[in-house]
Design a protein around this nucleic acid. Structure first.
Length: 700
DNA sequence: ATGACCAATTGA
DNA sequence: CAATTGGTCATG
């Protein structure tokens, strides 16, 4: 520990300069008594070699290293356990991949420094999965391992996991809900019989999908196999948790989320790793859960952006689960009310089968959807509507719905609320120099750009030439206040951000919610109003149209069916394809068209794409060393928009630039391989790293 | 990362 | 000539 200041002194030249070799010897001599070298290794009698994956951030060291297992660690050092080893002069953490009788390595092996515990936290299947994910996303196994294995909690490890009989799934009680889907009962029987079907499931609006997921898990359990169910957030986890308790009884499944806190999280993880439970529900971190005898992976609403992991190498939960299904040969279920283009691609390639209800059943379960334009002329007719800034038909819809039950208003998130738009054509107002959104900061000031701060005194709409601006949406609180004045006889509540309501009572009331925060209501909403959809639909990147439809469908699916009087009013452009898909309740058709567009635009999932981010010179250098497969294109570099940059840039930092590399989908593995190779070379040569993201979610 | 080694470069 | 710097390589 005392070497560091001395080394600094050496560099500062306070001592008489000595030849480097002499200095190194001197330091070594000082170090030897301090570092209590363990007694000369007395290797384990059997399998004395441990293959260890060392936790290092360096791309070129992403491979196993062999160590000698001292005899006293023989029982503790099991495959998948944690160890500490000496590597390049420092103590580092590692996982034991396997024990071996001999090493390929020619040199002498160092002994393991310490066996941390005998708990096999990294199963062979998960170790393979980490390798596959690292390869797919051009990252390192140690980065993926940080996502896959939760931090150790020693106290929890000492306690045994409650062991029950993990088997005996009950198929009969759960089968009912799947009867509404042709192929559904067959899916369940396949799972119960040990088969591994793969399906993209378009759930009916209002479907009690947690029960169907639980039924699938129960069927899989009946075949002696485990299940892994991923859902977007902890509200959904709670619903599936309850459904699993109903289907399996208590103690047969476990909840795995990061929110639970380190002790509870590790406790649940250990129960799975030890095979005490074989059914897991959780959020994106659960995708790596070491479920024994995995028979089924399932993901609900795979278009939710919560599935995009924000830490390197930025894997997507759906892709992790699909890699796993391929590797472990288990069943896969990709379900949702909406359908992502990636799910559509699974159908197109024949990887999965389609599981959809017949058209009449969809019609019967879906609410009646209408679209209304938001013209000021309509607003003027009704003073109440004007106060709430609602089109008249939406206002009337709310009034009509309140006579029959609760009404839901979905408003864009608060972040959207301050963006200005053209008064005439509703195009979002953007800053001419940088393209950032314009906003009004104070009533007396001219509008300014949120990215570069430039004030715009003489803005004119590039679409229609008009000069008028309007603040299109009020925040959800303000909307709620104004609705409260318009409908004083009913309660008005909000659900958004920090205060999300899980449910509301099935009585007349108004609920204002942001996307993803809509409360559930028993029996469904009488009316659902989607406010200002044009605002969300006008955002720049390609994903947002699909995303808007997904959110619209999710809210609309909470309304009663048409036969029960369920109505949905969407405020926006009736000609917009996303709103037409909503009116027809045709998420599959929309996904098909969207996939076709992506294909012709050479965008994922029809192509595989990676972004490289860094200083311009480093990018040029990096891309020059790539061995790109045939058909590859390099686009850019362009400057990274200010709002996407990391926190606080020093003025002297070179501008962050981004370029895009794109290849046909079959060459995706080649692209990832050459990116890994490039990162390895850069890391070994101590060159500045460039950030690599394969198929990033929010491109644009 | 850290450290070792080698070759080219600098300095008196 | 020695000392320094910079690139490359290995780390078990």
């Amino acid at each position: 520990m005392s070497q560091r200041p001395e080394a600094a002194d050496d560099r500062a030249g306070r001592e008489t300069p000595l030849p480097q070799v002499v200095r190194a010897r001197a330091r070594e001599a000082q170090q030897r008594p301090a570092a209590t070298a363990p007694a000369p290794a007395d290797p384990a009698p059997e399998l004395p070699v441990a293959r260890v994956l060392v936790d290092l951030p360096l791309a070129h060291l992403d491979r196993p290293f062999d160590y000698l297992v001292p005899a006293r660690m023989h029982d503790t050092v099991v495959p998948g356990s944690r160890v500490k080893v000496r590597f390049a002069g420092q103590d580092v953490d590692g996982f034991v991949l396997e024990r071996a009788g001999a090493s390929e390595h020619a040199g002498r092996l160092s002994p393991l420094r310490r066996a941390v515990s005998a708990e096999p936290v990294l199963s062979p299947a998960v170790a393979r999965l980490c390798e596959l994910v690292a390869a797919r996303y051009a990252g390192t196994r140690s980065d993926v391992l940080r996502l896959a294995v939760p931090p150790r909690h020693a106290t929890t490890e000492k306690r045994p996991s409650p062991a029950g009989d993990p088997w005996a799934g009950d198929l009969a009680s759960a089968a009912a809900g799947w009867g509404g889907y042709p192929g559904g009962p067959e899916l369940l029987h396949g799972l119960a019989g040990g088969a591994s079907p793969r399906a993209v499931w378009s759930a009916l609006p209002g479907e009690s999908w947690p029960c169907l997921l639980a039924a699938a898990a129960a069927a899989t359990l009946a075949s002696g196999r485990g299940s892994l169910l991923c859902v977007p957030d902890h509200r959904d986890v709670a619903r599936v948790d309850a459904a699993l308790s109903a289907a399996l009884g208590t103690g047969r499944h476990v909840v795995l989320t990061a929110e639970a806190g380190p002790a509870r999280r590790y406790r649940a993880f250990l129960a799975v790793a030890r095979g005490a439970v074989r059914v897991v529900v959780g959020t994106r971190a659960a995708a790596f859960a070491p479920v024994h005898d995995l028979g089924l992976v399932a993901i609900w609403d795979d278009g939710d952006d919560l599935y995009a992991e924000p830490r390197a190498p930025y894997p997507h939960t759906r892709e992790v689960l699909l890699l796993r299904a391929d590797d472990e040969g288990c069943a896969a279920l990709v379900g949702g009310v909406a359908r992502t283009v990636e799910a559509e691609y699974l159908l197109r390639t024949g990887w999965a089968a389609e599981l959809t209800a017949p058209r009449p059943a969809v019609r019967a379960a879906a609410p009646l959807v209408s679209v209304t334009g938001a013209t000021d002329r309509e607003l003027e007719r009704d003073p109440h509507a004007r106060t709430a800034r609602l089109p008249r038909s939406a206002f009337e819809g709310i009034r009509d719905g309140l006579a029959r039950g609760p009404v839901l208003l979905q408003t864009p998130r608060q972040g959207y609320a301050t963006i200005l738009a053209c008064e005439t054509c509703r195009s979002p107002a953007r800053c001419p120099p940088c393209g950032g959104p314009l906003r009004q900061t104070a009533a007396e000031r001219p509008p300014s750009c949120r990215w570069c701060g430039t004030e715009q005194r003489s803005w004119a709409c590039p679409e229609c030439g008009e000069r008028g601006l309007r603040a299109p949406v009020l925040g959800d609180r303000r909307t709620a206040e104004e609705l409260g004045r318009a409908f004083p006889q009913v309660p008005v509540r909000t659900s958004s951000g920090e205060r999300v309501l899980a449910t509301v009572d099935p009585v007349p009331s108004v609920v204002v919610a942001t996307p993803g925060a809509e409360p559930l209501v028993d029996g469904g909403y009488a009316v659902v109003v989607l406010l200002d959809t044009w605002l969300m639909l006008a955002r720049t990147d390609l994903r947002t149209v699909e995303e808007s439809l997904r959110r619209g469908l999710a809210a609309a699916a909470l309304a009663r069916g048409e036969a029960d009087g369920g109505r949905v009013v969407a405020v926006g452009d009736p000609a917009h394809p996303a709103l037409q898909a909503l009116v027809r309740w045709d998420p599959a058709g929309f996904a098909r068209r969207e996939l076709e567009e992506r294909r012709s635009a050479h965008l994922p999932p029809a192509s595989r794409l990676a972004t490289l981010t860094g200083a311009e010179a480093d990018l040029a250098d990096a891309v020059a060393t790539l061995r790109l497969p045939p058909g590859a294109e390099v686009l850019g570099p362009v400057e990274v928009p200010p709002h996407e940059r990391g926190p606080r840039q020093v003025a002297t930092d070179p501008a962050q630039m981004r370029l895009v590399v794109r290849v046909p989908r079959p060459a995706g593995a080649d692209l990832s391989r050459t990116l890994v190779e490039m990162q390895g070379v850069r890391s070994a040569r101590k060159l500045p790293m460039v950030r690599v993201q394969v198929d990033p979610v929010g491109l644009g």
